[in-house]
């Protein structure tokens, strides 16, 4: 088996999408890790749906952990100068109103049209929507960060999502442990590829037909 990128490296690649001054909302899991890899010289302001903008890194030391300062994943975060707090109605007005530049979400499935399924495994019969539907509909750019295939090697990038949808045609960019793909009107454009992998090998891990970018290159960090 060829090596795939680890979760930290996926997060590192995602972070390269953040531009100076962007307002960014990170979902739970790999997306949260992206906050550790902001490119040097850029300032990114993080939004969390439970009502804060501009907070700092995860509070590692117990003395810095405050139960009144958590992110949407329930992790303790740290204060930063310029931070602000607001209620949940304002928080979701920001999201739906198109004021958040980028959201990075995990996914169970993504379709070639950019449909996103990330809230319920049908076999569990119950799931958490949380803020995902609002973020998928409201953020200016939706990036999915996930493993290319599930634990059993099945397609997560599919022609059609078979799991309950979070939102239709909302995903702009998919970053996985094998590739970076842009959702275009013609289909998924393969733009970057993990070191040591060929486009054909990535294609066999992907259900829909990938369009090879003329500028296809190795994933850059």
């Amino acid at each position: 088996m060829k090596a795939r990128l680890d979760r930290e490296t996926i997060a590192m690649r995602v972070a390269r999408e953040f531009k100076d001054g962007d307002f960014v909302n990170l979902g739970i899991g790999i997306p949260t890790l992206a906050s550790n890899y902001i490119p040097e010289g850029r300032t990114v302001i993080f939004h969390t749906e439970n009502g804060a903008l501009g907070f700092g890194p995860i509070a590692v030391e117990e003395k810095d952990q405050d139960i009144d300062l958590i992110n949407a994943g329930g992790q303790f975060v740290t204060p930063l100068p310029g931070m602000s707090f607001f209620d949940s109605a304002i928080s979701f007005a920001m999201i739906r109103g198109g004021h958040v530049d980028i959201t990075v979400l995990g996914a169970m499935q993504v379709s070639e049209k950019g449909d996103l399924a990330n809230w319920m495994f049908p076999e569990r019969g119950i799931g958490n929507i949380g803020g995902a539907m609002d973020l998928a509909v409201g953020a200016k750019k939706v990036i999915v960060a996930m493993e290319h295939n599930d634990k059993n090697g099945k397609y997560k990038i599919a022609k059609r999502c078979t799991y309950p949808l979070t939102a239709k045609e909302c995903v702009n960019l998919i970053v996985t442990d094998l590739a970076v793909m842009e959702v275009t009107p013609k289909g998924l454009l393969l733009k970057e590829i993990a070191p040591g992998w060929t486009p054909q090998e990535v294609q066999t891990c992907t259900e829909p037909r990938l369009i090879l970018s003329p500028e296809l290159k190795e994933i850059e960090l």
């Binding site: 749906e49 979701f92 803020g131 995902a132 539907m133 609002d134 509909v137 409201g138 939102a167």
Partner: peptide
């Protein structure tokens, strides 16, 4: 199960004397 922004807005609407509202969240799901 209600999307979080919709849940909040449904309660906010009740407190603000609004009977219902149109939201894009959840369309197609």
């Amino acid at each position: 199960v209600v999307p979080q922004g919709t849940l909040v807005e449904r309660v906010r609407a009740a407190g603000a004397g609004i009977g219902a509202f149109y939201t894009p969240t959840g369309v197609g799901t």
